[in-house]
Write a protein that binds this DNA or RNA. Structure first.
Length: 185
DNA sequence: CTACAGATCTAT
DNA sequence: TAGATCTGTAGC
């Protein structure tokens, strides 16, 4: 079953925790690609110094300030796309970054899907998906999964945000304990 | 306008 | 361990 807007209309931490086990699906040119989320991070708003929105409202971050259930896709280091789902009410710029998926169907790119850049390559996500409605008729969407037992959910600091001071230490990353598909580091 | 750092990944 | 190469910000 496709996740509806109310799923995303909650604090980013709650959404991140529950996105584990959900399936990210991209249908394009008659091909269906899908991966089960095993690793993700919450970026909780403008006050979160690790969140891109903390720099203010820019064309790039605009979608995060809008309603929940939309895709925020950005380019890092000029090469790699990162996929986020916008969460929370309009005005609160929060989102959840998908860091790794377990292959389910039709993935590309040497079969690896650990790391935010590889997730997008494997699923075929690019900037054309930025700002797209995840609860609409077209584009990527999230499908319900079996859910992950509490004892299999691990928490820790987010990756690659050392510049964010105290915010870098907060345990806003969630992953499935023991999954071989979780991103390294 | 130039400089530089960044929610990364790959090949040397 | 360096290189690829786009975006936004800071500094001149």
């Amino acid at each position: 079953m496709k996740l509806t807007r109310d799923f995303f209309d909650r604090p980013a931490l709650a959404v991140a925790r529950e996105l584990l086990g959900k399936v990210l699906v991209v249908e394009a040119a008659g091909r269906r690609r899908a991966g089960r989320i095993v690793d993700c991070e919450a970026y909780v708003g403008q006050h979160d110094l690790a969140c891109h929105a903390s720099k203010g409202r820019t064309p790039r971050t605009e979608v995060m300030f809008g309603p929940p259930g939309f895709a925020y896709v950005f380019l890092v280091y000029g090469m790699h796309h990162c996929f986020n789902a916008v969460t929370g009410a309009p005005g609160l710029a929060a989102a959840v970054l998908v860091r790794a998926v377990e292959p389910v169907e039709g993935l590309e790119g040497r079969g690896r899907s650990d790391g935010p850049g590889r997730v997008c390559r494997a699923l075929g996500i690019n900037r054309s998906h930025d700002g797209v409605d995840l609860c609409g008729g077209r584009g990527p969407f999230l499908e319900d999964g079996p859910g992950i037992a509490r004892r299999r959910v691990e928490r820790g600091p987010r990756i690659g945000v050392a510049y964010a001071g105290a915010w870098a230490k907060r345990p806003y990353r969630f992953w499935v304990a023991g999954s071989p598909f979780v991103s390294g580091q």
